[in-house]
Design a protein around this nucleic acid. Structure first.
Lengths: 169, 169
DNA sequence: TTTAATGTGATACGATCGTATCATAAAAGA
DNA sequence: TCTTTTATGATACGATCGTATCACATTAAA
């Protein structure tokens, strides 16, 4: 609380005044960060993006590729651990993820399939789950320096090419 | 330190005696846990396991499917976060992962490919990376209750079937 | 102008924590 | 037997932290 107040250039008392307790402050901060992330990723979507590009942007948005997304990944991890022993916080953490990034990607894949852009014999829901879990799995690796950012991007692209047909030139 | 001593049924002073500092204790504990995990996963390998089964056991071993592996996943996450601001600890954390689970799986895939057990047109190193990142990505989801354990296992199996040919009956 | 909201500053309570110190004792090995 | 290892227990220091309280400003709205 003191550190938050100091960095905000404000009295400790005022932080207490608006947030009451530390737990409330954490929840408010989480929701701000989630909203911020959503806008950041949406902002990376080009105008006439194809479905494949849109999915790619989403997947890369989950990776810690720059300072800002790296911070977001860290925050998500920290909140995740805290949520394990804090049911109230757990709701806020899962509410962000649960509403269905997976269903969203699966729907986008379905659209691409209808347009004949996908290889055949795919289980779209499971492919969506694979792509998302792949990205969040590599997030940890990149954060720890186990894997380079370039390597992670290459692996995302490899899997996109595995699912999408080559674009006809 | 006090809590560790209490749970060990030993005086706080003794914990200090053997580990000197908290940081040393954490590093020792990490290395014990890493060794424990390795043995746990190896112990789940059946005698005459196929390469596919062996890879499957490894992948499932990364998931928090029971109380013990769940604890291991939590510990790994907690150490990971701590390692971000602790270069010394980071070495110990990455040393466990780095030596190349990915290369190990890639080698196993190469063996399966030589035996004609794989589909064609695969990049074995990238498939290995995908499988491993997939599992560790789902670990977080299962831990948070975003995904069920059964769902995670099904997704691992889906990806194994995507790589391996159906076994000839 | 009166009132309510917004803000400051200092100060304190109780709790946790890693670490340090010291005297002392039991057990094991030389 | 002598000495080193292994262990206890109490006690304390300094630091951090979330929270609470109180008096007192400033600003904005009624």
């Amino acid at each position: 609380m003191r550190q938050v107040a100091a960095e905000a250039g404000v009295s400790t008392r005022l932080v207490q005044y608006y947030f009451e307790t530390r737990d409330r402050l954490l929840i408010e901060a989480l929701s701000l960060r989630n909203e911020h992330d959503r806008k950041r990723i949406e902002g990376q979507l080009p105008e006439g993006a194809s479905l494949q590009d849109a999915i790619r942007v989403m997947l890369l948005g989950l990776l810690p590729l720059d300072a800002e997304s790296r911070q977001s990944t860290l925050i998500q991890l920290a909140y995740g651990i805290r949520a394990v022993n804090d049911p109230l916080l757990a709701e806020h953490v899962t509410d962000h993820a649960k509403p269905g990034l997976e269903e969203l990607v699966a729907d986008m894949l379905a659209g691409a399939q209808a347009a004949g852009q996908l290889h055949e014999g795919l289980d779209l829901v499971r492919e969506a789950g694979t792509l998302l879990a792949l990205s969040s799995g590599m997030s940890y690796d990149v954060l720890m320096g186990i894997r380079t950012a370039d390597d992670a991007v290459a692996l995302v692209d490899y899997n996109l090419q595995r699912v999408f047909r080559p674009v006809s030139a």
